[in-house]
């Protein structure tokens, strides 16, 4: 930290759809930077001392729950783990695009992800009913670790917001959706066949709708290997229809 305390200027997008008099605009707030200040701390300070109506979302404040995705100087990021020290003195915050706005920096990711989960049937399609008396089915630890890697997505929506396709095509599954599909596709407990999966991911809303700009991988706070995920999906999907025999 430098000796001189910085005066940070926050330029924050404001719009309250519930208020008929509200128009989209930018408000500017100034606060003094503190050591190890995160956007979680800064936004709460602004709300508690300058504008009590400011809307934003945080829950775990430890980069686990995925609540606080927002555009930080134009780039999707988790507010809770973004340190002001890594940013210039002027910090411009917008809500994540591609999601319905609730107000100011708060967006409706819940509806988007529930819809995605329903459309891709993002649950284990069981091979047989659970038997409470039985020992668990075995799984190799390597496969468990690979599934866990895909399971690490926290559905913050940063990849969706950064996606050129998702921003113009609301049905596109985007990084989080495609990763979710791959996670179930590689799970030996899921009974879906390659043909079933073809229906889920082969359309324009699936992996072939991706135009390969890969901003998703750049902004993913969990650093999920999305490039490999898409390659896996393409390989599995093409293998089904075109590469057999």
């Amino acid at each position: 930290m430098t000796d001189k305390v910085r005066r940070l200027s926050f330029e924050i997008f404001r719009f309250n759809p519930e208020d008929p008099e509200s128009e989209p605009h930018i408000d500017t707030f100034e606060i003094l930077e503190r050591p190890y200040m995160t956007l979680y701390m800064a936004l709460n300070e602004i709300r508690e001392t300058q504008d009590a109506g400011l809307q934003f979302d945080f829950a775990c404040r430890s980069a686990i729950c995925g609540s606080c995705g927002m555009l930080v100087n134009g780039r999707p990021a988790l507010g809770c783990r973004t340190l002001t020290a890594d940013l210039p003195e002027t910090i411009r915050l917008h809500p994540l695009p591609a999601f319905k706005l609730i107000g100011d920096l708060s967006v409706d990711t819940g509806t988007w992800f529930r819809d995605m989960a329903e459309r891709t049937e993002a649950w284990i399609h069981e091979q047989q009913a659970f038997d409470p008396e039985a020992t668990e089915d075995r799984m190799s630890d390597d496969i468990a670790a690979a599934i866990y890697e895909g399971d690490r997505c926290i559905e913050c929506g940063c990849c969706v917001a950064s996606c050129g396709v998702a921003n113009v095509s609301p049905e596109f599954l985007a990084g989080a959706g495609l990763n979710r599909v791959a996670r179930f596709m590689m799970d030996p407990r899921d009974s879906r066949s390659d043909e079933d999966w073809f229906e889920v991911v082969a359309g324009d809303d699936g992996v072939f709708g991706c135009i390969g700009m890969m901003a998703c991988a750049d902004v993913c706070p969990k650093e999920l290997p999305l490039l490999e995920v898409y390659a896996y999906l393409r390989r599995r999907t093409l293998g089904t229809k075109f590469l057999k025999d």
Binding site: W123, I124, M139, D141, A144, A145, I147, D151, D187, R189
Partner: peptide, 8 residues
């Protein structure tokens, strides 16, 4: 059964 990838 629900899909948790427990360490094995």
């Amino acid at each position: 059964h629900f899909g948790v990838p427990w360490t094995r």
